[in-house]
């Protein structure tokens, strides 16, 4: 399953004199799950809206391939969930699903069957009979997922699906997504790296309208992770002073020190750990923790975003 489903080439968007998306290119393989990560204002939502066909790009192309051939109108193949899904408050959940199913081209009978199925799948079987006006944020998000999936799209595009939810609602949606991604290709945007790591295998990192990093999660971990030593020392004067000085040692490439904790990027993790420990013992410094390991994606993300 490595056939490409979506090809984006040189996609750009300009609002008046501000270029929000600056000619980005990427592709998404069928069956994969890609996360578009970036800080707020990086151009994620604009990109997503262009992919969903809701916004006319200023330049570049978006091509969706079905059975290996490009399609003229991608909308039947796409399920889209906007950042803050809004529904008709006077409709019931079941009515809205039926309505969106029929709009997407299902017959009345198919739409009725799928509505029942998806209400069950997203756990809204009982709430489906009530007006959407009384739904909570999490319920709306789940209903939004159901309406995006009711016509069995090939590509599901989600804009910040969990960012506005409380921990419980977030867990619900992520669990659902984990199930959905077994059947459908998923692209979603988020500014929370942890969510991406949990369900995705592809990462596209955006900053100021450009893609600064892209690749599979494993590949990024392997290529960009660096040896790091995390240190925590006791609260006494001597230890603190020692920690502050530790950043200046020759094997330390870069250091972040705050209070009693330090994160040191080093050239050789084994040697660094040994030298640090020997040094600490000789100066009677109390070490609480010393962890020799790799930098996480979080570090990579912060680095990419700040650089």
């Amino acid at each position: 399953m490595t056939r490409e489903l979506l090809q984006v080439k040189g996609l750009s968007k300009r609002f008046k004199d501000r270029e929000v998306v600056k000619g980005i290119s990427f592709s998404i393989a069928e069956g994969s799950c890609a996360a578009l990560i970036g800080p707020n204002g990086a151009g994620k939502t604009t990109t997503i809206r262009m992919l969903a066909g809701l916004l006319q790009p200023s330049g570049g192309s978006v091509v969706l391939l079905a059975e290996g051939r490009p399609v003229a109108d991608p909308r039947p193949y796409i399920g889209y969930l906007p950042q803050m899904p809004v529904f008709y408050p006077w409709m019931t959940g079941a009515e809205f699903l039926l309505y969106s199913g029929e709009l997407a081209g299902l017959t009345r009978r198919e739409a009725t069957r799928e509505t029942g199925k998806w209400l069950d799948a997203v756990g809204l079987r009982d709430a489906g009979k009530r007006r959407i006006g009384g739904y909570s944020g999490g319920m709306k998000q789940r209903l939004g997922l159901a309406q995006a999936l009711i016509h069995r799209p090939r590509l599901l595009i989600l804009d910040e699906p969990v960012s506005a939810l409380d921990p419980a609602g977030r867990k619900d949606v992520l669990t659902l997504l984990q199930r959905i991604r077994l059947e459908t290709t998923v692209l979603f945007s988020t500014h929370v790296l942890h969510d991406a790591e949990e369900i995705c295998d592809e990462i596209l990192m955006m900053r100021e309208g450009e893609i600064v990093l892209q690749g599979s999660l494993d590949h990024l971990r392997r290529t960009y992770s660096e040896p790091v030593i995390r240190l925590e020392v006791g609260g006494d004067e001597v230890s603190r002073a020692w920690l502050a000085a530790a950043g200046g040692k020759d094997f330390v490439v870069q250091s972040e020190i705050s209070g009693g904790r330090a994160k040191l990027r080093v050239a050789d993790v084994e040697r660094a750990a040994l030298e640090l420990m020997a040094d600490a013992v000789s100066r009677r410094v109390t070490i609480r923790t010393l962890e020799a390991g790799q930098s996480t994606l979080e570090d990579l993300f912060l680095k990419a975003v700040r650089s």
């Binding site: 969903a52 066909g53 809701l54 109108d73 909308r75 039947p76 796409i78 399920g79 889209y80 969930l81 906007p82 803050m84 899904p85 809004v86 529904f87 008709y88 969106s100 709009l103 997407a104 081209g105 939004g144 309406q147 016509h151």
Partner: peptide, 13 residues
């Protein structure tokens, strides 16, 4: 304004 039409127009209508 409410944004419902975003979801509607993402469908092949």
């Amino acid at each position: 304004q409410s944004g419902v039409s975003q979801m509607i127009f993402a469908k092949p209508v």
